[in-house]
Design a protein around this nucleic acid. Structure first.
Length: 302
DNA sequence: AGGGCCCATCGCA
DNA sequence: TGCGATGGGCCCT
């Protein structure tokens, strides 16, 4: 049963951004201008400017840059380094704001089959449309997006863990949604707990993905090399595609070596949107997480 | 160096 | 949503 509430502003903003991305990338060779994109989305240039500012602190030119092939190529130039920069929380060394800001725990084998597992779910606004959030007792287990109807998005989550019981509990999942999408809440001293439900290989790939900093990108072959299976790039790609915790486990930061965005389970426009959003928000992330890191690390022995 | 133009941005109504 | 002030960048003299 869907209530027909008015879409929150952030969801309306994403609908506009997505439309702009689709318009611009479908007509890339014509070099469409930003106000053509605005007109196509049915609003004035000034409005689109304001939407982009609200959505990701992006100006129109910064937005065009963030969704350009040049930007992706630039990200890929540092793809191998992306996985190396990060180190686990708590190690000594210079404070690096782009380090991990999430921890996770892996469920047991029994839980992995999800027999008797109780999963709570809710729908919440996000910068990438309405999100479906699935929480296990141990932590955040699933995050996906609603395109047309909520039942489809929820059905997708149900199919991932067919033997689990699903309970509607938006109050229980709301905190996860807020944490996942608000950089101000990405705190090292209060990490987001993730419940990864998958095969050992899947979980290893997802853990590796977590090391890619905000606003960076990596490649399937870099991940394969990182986990010591340099020939397993395709298997890595498949595991990345099975990632149930979209955005938080940043599968949108996994790109093809060639500079192709490759696929994205929740839609290519959404992957581009996430890349653009991070380009706009990365300074803010560095500021907030960096401040938190400073406090944490200064007391640690070097 | 100076002048003039273009254009993105942003405050304002 | 549209207007206009602002200011940076750029070319030409």
């Amino acid at each position: 049963m869907l209530e027909m509430e008015a879409a929150p502003p952030v969801i309306a903003d994403y609908a506009i951004v997505e439309r702009a991305i689709e318009f611009i990338s479908s007509r890339r060779r014509d070099q469409p201008s930003i106000d053509e994109a605005a007109k196509n989305a049915g609003l004035s240039l000034r409005r689109l400017e304001q939407v982009l500012e609200r959505w990701a602190r992006l100006t129109t030119t910064a937005f065009l840059q963030a969704i350009s092939v040049e930007h992706v190529r630039e990200l890929l130039r540092n793809s191998a380094a992306a996985l190396e920069e990060a180190h686990p929380v708590g190690l000594s060394g210079p404070a690096r704001p782009r380090d991990l800001f999430a921890i996770h725990e892996t469920l047991t084998l029994r839980d992995r089959r999800s027999d008797g597992l109780v999963l709570r779910y809710g729908f919440h606004p996000s910068p990438f449309g309405e999100a479906v959030v699935v929480a296990a007792p141990q932590g955040l287990a699933g995050l996906g997006f609603v395109d047309d109807d909520r039942e489809a998005a929820l059905g997708d989550m149900r199919r991932r863990w067919p033997r689990a019981r699903f309970l509607a509990d938006a109050d229980g999942t709301g905190a996860y949604a807020r944490r996942a999408f608000d950089p101000k809440l990405w705190r090292l001293d209060a990490p987001l707990r993730l419940a990864m439900i998958g095969s050992d290989f899947d979980v290893l790939v997802w853990e590796t993905l977590l090391r890619a900093p905000v606003g960076s990108a990596t490649t399937y072959s870099d991940i394969a090399r990182k986990i010591g299976k340099p020939t397993a790039a395709r298997a890595v790609g498949a595991a990345v595609g099975r990632n149930p915790i979209s955005f938080v486990v940043p599968c949108h930061r996994a790109l093809g070596r060639s500079g192709a965005l490759t696929g994205y389970y929740w839609g290519l426009a959404r992957k581009q949107a996430m890349i653009a959003w991070e380009a706009g928000r990365v300074a803010e992330v560095v500021e907030w997480v960096g401040a938190a890191m400073g406090k944490n690390i200064s007391s640690a022995p070097c």
